[in-house]
Design a protein around this nucleic acid. Sequence first.
DNA 1: GTTGATTTTTTTGTATACAAAAATGCGATT
DNA 2: AATCGCATTTTTGTATACAAAAAAATCAAC
Lengths: 249, 249
Amino acid sequence: MQKSHERGGGPLDTARPKHVGKNGDGAERHEVIYQTISDAIIEHQLRPGARLREDALTEVFNISRTGVRKILQRLALEQLVTLTPRRGASVTRPTASEARDVFAARQLVECGLMPEVARRITQDDVRELKRMAREEREALSVGAQSRAIKFSAAFHERLAELSGNATLAAFVRQLCSRSSLILAVYGSTGHLGCESHDHDDLVDCLERGEGTNARAFMQRHLKEIEASLSVVEEEASAPDLHQIFGLDE
Amino acid sequence: MQKSHERGGGPLDTARPKHVGKNGDGAERHEVIYQTISDAIIEHQLRPGARLREDALTEVFNISRTGVRKILQRLALEQLVTLTPRRGASVTRPTASEARDVFAARQLVECGLMPEVARRITQDDVRELKRMAREEREALSVGAQSRAIKFSAAFHERLAELSGNATLAAFVRQLCSRSSLILAVYGSTGHLGCESHDHDDLVDCLERGEGTNARAFMQRHLKEIEASLSVVEEEASAPDLHQIFGLDE
DNA sequence: GTTGATTTTTTTGTATACAAAAATGCGATT
DNA sequence: AATCGCATTTTTGTATACAAAAAAATCAAC
C-alpha cells in the first residue's frame, strides 16, 4: 500500500495543507468524520462484523492514523465498534444478551422519561416531532430503509432530550445507536423498528399532556419492536466445540 | 526533573527496555493506570479542577504520551476528566445542572432496578453487600473519608450489577463516579453521601424480597443524599462581570 | 511600581517511524 | 494431493519528533 500521502500527482492534492494549518479546524474535522462513520453504522451501510482497518480509513478521510485511532476509540466506548487487541476494529455485533439488556434499559429509561416530557413539551416541540415522524414514514414508504432507521433513532433521541436531562438523553442516544445494530443482526428483513403511526400517536398523547398514558404507550411500542426481533444466539463465527462435544467443563 | 528518556546520545545501552517488550502486558498496564487515576479521582485525592498534564503523567507512570492520551480520552468519555482543546486535561468540575441530572438519572435507574434485584438476589449476594456496607461504616468511623466514598460507590454499583443488566450496571457505575465528583464540589464537609445504616437496611429489604419497598427505600436514600448537597452555581473561577453589572444583553 | 508588549518556555496536537504480532502465501514432505 | 512449517506481507501497538498554541516570564516605558 502506498503511503497515502505523497502519491504522485493525485487529483486531490490541492487543498491539502500537509499537516500544518489543520489545527484550527482539526477537532471539527474529527467530529465530522466521527459523525460520518457513526451514521454509516447506524444506517446499516456498515453492517455488524465489517472490519474497519486503520489504513483504509486514513486513505478515505485523509487524516493520519492518530486521528483515526482517536475516532475508533470513541466509537468503541460507545459500543458501536469493537476493538480487538491485535485484530483491529470492526462494527460491533451485539450478542443476544446485550440485545436484551439494551431493550430492558430503554424500557426503564425512555418510559420513565415520558411523564416529564409530557410536562415540558411545547407546541414547537410537537411540530418538530411530527415532522420527524413524517420524514420517517416517507422514507419508509419510498423504501429507504436506512434513512428510516436513522429518523426513527433521531425521534427517540429527541424525545429524550425534551426531558431536559442531558445525562439521560445522552444515554438514550447510545441505546438507540446500539438498537440500530441490534436490528441489523436480529431484525427480520422488511420489518424495521417502529411501526408507522406509533410515533405520531405518541406525540398526540404527549401533546395532550397525558404522561402516564404516554409511558404506557412507549412501553407497548418498545415491546413491539423487541418482539419483532428474533433474538437467538447465533454463533456462526466460532461454534463452541467444547460445549458441543462436552469434553470438559 | 530529568526527562527519564534523554540519555546523552549513548548507543542504546543495555538495561533500558526502550519501547520493546511492553507489548505483552501493555494493555493490562494501561488498564491498571486507568484504574489508578480513576480511583484517585473518585477518592478525592484528585479534586475537581486539578490539572492532569500529560508530561507529568508520563513521568509518574513511565509510559509514553500516546498511552497517557488514550487513558485521558477514556476518562473524558466517562466524564471524570474534561479535555479542553488546547488547555489539556483536568478533573471535571460538574456544573449544578449536571449534578441535578445525575441524581435524577440515579433516581430513575437505580430505583427502577430494585424490584428486579430483589427478585434475583441470593444469600451470597446479601453477604457480600453486607460486608461492603460494613467496610464503608468502618472506614467512616475511622475518619477515612476517601475510602468510605469508594466503598459507598462500590455498593451502589454492585447493587446495579445484581440486576443482571450489564448495560444499566455500566451506566450506574458512571453515575456513581460522577456523583463522587459532585460530592467533592457541592457536598458539605463532614457529611458524605450515604447515611451509615441506610445501606444495611436496604439489603435487609432486598433479602426479604420486598422489591417495591426497596425501591421506595432507595428513592428516599438518594433524595437524602441530594438534599445534603448545596447545589448552587459557584463560579469562583470566572465571575461573570457582564451579568453582574448588566452592561449588555 | 504598575502596565503593556515581546520573548521564552511549557504544553498540547498531529504525523510518522519502527517493532511486534497476526494473516497470508508458498513450497517441501509424506 | 493434502498438510504442515517457514517466509513474506499486512496491520496494529507504541514511542517520539516536530509544530502550533497558550502560559509564563522578562523587559521597557511611563
